[in-house]
Design a protein around this nucleic acid. Structure first.
Lengths: 188, 188
DNA sequence: GTCTATAGAGTGATAGAC
DNA sequence: GTCTATCACTCTATAGAC
């Protein structure tokens, strides 16, 4: 009855796209079985906790991705001149110029916020911390650096919303450009 | 068999809060009947199109509220020194320091975006236009004024997300303060 | 034989439409 | 209130690896 061995990483990436597109309540198991090609048995074997555990696993995967590709570089080489531009480039690519939503951001304005509060808070607070460190290296005083880090991240989240609301990827692009200017102006 | 006449405005305001809290997919008719005290018959009499028409009516109501309390003042007295601070105050109050979500913002990152695309785009584009006008009156060149207006609105949306993600209303407050400073600095 | 991963029919509850 | 469809989830059966 069985066949090709299930690739958990592959499954998680499909799950992530479904949750991004349909939200938590809008994602049905029927949709999941269809998109993954897996039966309910397989899904409940991989994720005994059902849909909630699938979302948790997706959030962990996302957190790991950002840790590796965004936060770690900020922490390990904060003094590099291109530390911040590199982050903004990676973010632009990840969010496909604002046309791909941030699952953490979506959840934080949904009724699932409390259920996944730890994952959400972890994601954003680590990002703020890493970025604060980098901004300090670029001659921003510690108090200002943290505020600027918060502002940067909310700017990115807001850019996703507004560019999607207006169906305008260019809006995302230019708002990231302005962010780039704002962050580098005082770095010299 | 007589019953109190249904107050459409009251019903819409209850519907708005439910949609804000549970999202579109997460809002069931059962939840609605419970919160409004109306039977399904009454609801379908008021909104023959069902849930979708309820959401549409809510969005129209929200648009009207912003038109009256936010956009119209910006357009009619853009030269007033407190035009922008007043807007920021009204917004802070409306969104309860970021703890109450923006339904238009939530929808724009949901799978309902296309269904309600017109209402969403109308809301944000009118806001941008009114704010652009006001910023021009405060000595920002037209091209810069529009970019700054976009930035202001995405900043507000991002502040809602981040302050909710971190359960930190103070973050919303200080990000609005910084917005205030940024918008008034070049106005002199 | 045991064990793990699988498919999918079957469950009761609840959805939105009317 | 009644309807049918669909929901998340359970459970039985079964396949291959060992």
């Amino acid at each position: 009855m069985s066949r090709p061995p299930t690739d958990r990483t592959k499954t998680l990436s499909i799950l992530a796209e479904i949750f991004r597109e349909y939200g938590y309540d809008g994602t049905s198991l029927g949709l999941i079985t269809q998109a993954t090609g897996l039966g309910k048995g397989s899904l409940y074997h991989m994720f005994p906790g059902g849909k909630a555990e699938m979302m948790s696993a997706v959030l962990t995967e996302i957190d790991t991705w950002f840790e590796t590709h965004i936060y770690a570089p900020l922490r390990s080489t904060p003094q590099r001149n291109d530390a911040i531009p590199s982050m903004l480039d990676a973010v632009t690519q990840y969010f496909v110029s604002g046309q791909r939503v941030c699952l953490m951001g979506v959840l934080s304005v949904s009724n699932q916020r409390d259920q996944f509060a730890d994952a959400i808070a972890h994601y954003f607070s680590r990002w703020i911390e890493a970025l604060t460190l980098t901004l300090q290296q670029h001659s921003h005083p510690p108090s200002q650096a943290r505020l600027l880090a918060e502002e940067t991240i909310l700017h990115i989240q807001g850019a996703i919303i507004l560019s999607r609301a207006l169906h305008d990827p260019a809006l995302f692009q230019r708002s990231i450009s302005r962010l780039h200017d704002k962050l580098s102006l005082r770095s010299r």
